[in-house]
Simulated scan of single mutants.
Amino acid sequence: MSVTDRTIVLAGATSASGLALARALVEAGARVVATGRSAERLAPLSAVGAEVDTADATSLESMTSLATRLGAVDAVLPLVGGWRGGGGLAGQSDDDLQALLPALEAVRATSRAFDAALRASDAGRFAIVSSTAVARPLAGGANYAAVKAASEAWARAVAQGFAKAARDAGEPLRAASLVFRAKALDPDALVPRVLSLWDVDALELNDQVLALD
Score class of each variant (00 low, 15 high):
15 S>V: 09
164 K>R: 14
213 D>E: 14
209 V>H: 07
111 S>V: 04
81 G>D: 05
169 A>G: 03
85 G>T: 04
90 A>S: 12
191 V>P: 01
65 S>N: 08
209 V>Y: 01
88 G>M: 09
81 G>I: 05
5 D>C: 07
127 A>Q: 02
15 S>H: 06
79 L>N: 10
198 W>S: 02
169 A>K: 05
139 A>C: 10
119 R>K: 11
67 A>G: 15
18 G>L: 11
129 V>G: 09
171 E>F: 05
172 P>M: 12
194 V>R: 01
98 Q>V: 08
152 E>P: 11
208 Q>I: 08
19 L>R: 13
126 F>A: 08
125 R>M: 02
15 S>G: 15
125 R>P: 02
39 A>H: 03
4 T>P: 00
5 D>L: 09
81 G>V: 11
199 D>I: 00
98 Q>L: 13
164 K>D: 14
72 A>H: 13
32 V>M: 06
207 D>S: 15
97 L>P: 01
99 A>Y: 02
30 A>E: 02
141 G>F: 05
80 V>M: 07
129 V>K: 01
169 A>D: 08
78 P>A: 12
101 L>S: 10
116 A>K: 10
82 G>F: 07
7 T>F: 07
207 D>Q: 13
30 A>D: 04
32 V>R: 02
118 L>W: 00
96 D>H: 12
66 L>D: 08
5 D>N: 15
86 G>Q: 07
177 S>D: 05
207 D>I: 00
170 G>F: 10
48 V>T: 03
201 D>R: 13
203 L>N: 07
37 R>I: 12
74 D>W: 01
26 V>H: 08
164 K>Y: 09
130 S>Y: 06
207 D>N: 11
154 W>E: 14
80 V>C: 12
211 A>Q: 13
123 A>Y: 00
182 A>P: 02
184 A>F: 09
